[in-house]
Simulated assay, not measured.
Amino acid sequence: MTYQDAFVPPYSDGPDLGHTEPQDTGPSAFSPALDSKGRIADDKAMLRAARDLTKDLGTARPAVFWGDMLISALLGYAALAGAILSSNIWAALGFGVVASLSLYRALLFIHELSHIHRDALPGFRFGWNLLVGIPMLTPSFMYEGVHTLHHQRTRYGTPEDPEYLPLALMKWWSLPLFVGIALLAPVALIIRFAVLVPLGALIPAVRNLVWTRFSALSINPDFRRRPADTDLKTRVIWQEAFGSLWAIALALSPLAIGWRPLLVALAVFSVTAVLNQLRTLVAHLWENEGEAMTVTAQFLDSVNVPPPGPIAEIWAPVGLRYHALHHLMPSMPYHALPEAHRRLAAEFGDMSTYAGSNHPGMVTLLRRIAASTMRAR
């Protein structure tokens, strides 16, 4: 069982534009190679090594996927129950933190599902949707067919990229707005599935609006989702049906069991949504102004937060602490990324293009982006 498209083409030609300054948080002596027009050129040695040194790491391990996802989900739901049932405020808060972090990890398997080949890990997509995607009103269709657009070489960082905004070049107030809006995500999802989906079943115009505007986990407000292909459309139907029934049950639950369970669950999911938004904020440097970029420029605009720091595994779980490496090998399973990173880091050293994507942590990255927005006019 292997992933499809495990490696990007090592030699990509075409337009290439990216930031050309040395990385503030990378090796001090590093500066990317530039072409004759002063733009970041592809580092072909790095791209070749990403392909050749990691050929044996492209196979997904079912035991790792199932074990990790099940433990995370079950721990999250058990802690959520503890937060709802506990009469002690501090115990409830402790349970809430555990629930948020565990369910956050379980939820982020949606990223793996957007890359996994349909024949790999039989039953995992269905199982994840039943245990995590639908209960958290974020079924996999909301990322499938969307996230892969972000990995298309000619779309990354352009206005056609659903997951890119030049945040580092925007006004300072765009950052708190970007993070704060995530607090509303759980309520917005209940409205989408409990109200808009049933209305869309009756009114085609509503259905079209819901699909094009409210059916993708994207951050680009100009992104409009295109019609789903036949294979995805089948999954959309059953995932939306079950999601709608669950959202209606949640909305009506206070009539039967009171408000506490719903409010606690919404608070836990809001924390999860904000944490994911913070992770998204530091997943890239967001310094591209809309032009197509080379693979190397995309890599350097993306972020690795490698060990030894252990905290990154909490806020960027399921391989997302190696986000830049993931952009070199989009379909490599998450459990193989640490070993792939070790091999490439050993191959190229601290003053290389590869090391230029390494950053020490979230706080440093937030400071960098915030400082950039303060200079924006």
Results as ranks from 00 to 15, higher is better:
1 M>H: 06
2 T>Q: 11
2 T>N: 11
11 Y>D: 14
11 Y>Q: 12
26 G>K: 06
29 A>K: 09
30 F>T: 11
34 L>D: 01
34 L>W: 02
43 D>P: 05
44 K>M: 12
48 R>E: 15
48 R>S: 15
49 A>I: 07
63 A>L: 09
63 A>T: 11
64 V>T: 11
64 V>G: 07
67 G>I: 02
75 L>F: 00
77 Y>Q: 12
78 A>E: 00
81 A>L: 07
82 G>A: 08
89 I>F: 07
89 I>K: 06
90 W>F: 00
95 F>I: 01
99 A>H: 04
103 L>F: 12
108 L>G: 10
111 H>K: 10
112 E>A: 07
113 L>Y: 02
116 I>E: 05
116 I>V: 15
118 R>Y: 03
121 L>Y: 04
127 G>Y: 10
128 W>F: 04
129 N>C: 04
130 L>M: 13
137 L>K: 03
140 S>N: 08
141 F>D: 00
154 T>Y: 09
154 T>C: 03
156 Y>M: 00
157 G>T: 03
159 P>N: 09
159 P>A: 04
168 A>P: 05
168 A>T: 03
170 M>V: 04
173 W>Y: 10
174 S>P: 00
177 L>F: 08
184 L>H: 09
187 V>L: 10
189 L>V: 11
192 R>S: 10
203 I>C: 02
204 P>D: 10
212 T>R: 06
213 R>H: 15
219 I>E: 06
224 R>W: 10
227 P>Y: 01
228 A>R: 01
232 L>I: 06
237 I>Y: 11
240 E>D: 14
243 G>L: 10
250 L>M: 12
263 L>Y: 12
264 V>M: 12
264 V>H: 09
264 V>T: 15
268 V>E: 01
272 T>E: 05
283 A>S: 13
284 H>P: 12
290 G>T: 10
290 G>F: 04
293 M>R: 03
306 P>L: 02
307 P>L: 04
308 P>I: 04
309 G>S: 03
310 P>L: 01
311 I>D: 02
312 A>E: 03
318 V>Q: 02
344 L>D: 11
351 M>H: 15
352 S>G: 14
354 Y>M: 00
355 A>Q: 13
355 A>L: 13
356 G>F: 00
361 G>W: 04
362 M>I: 11
370 A>M: 08
372 S>P: 07
372 S>E: 13
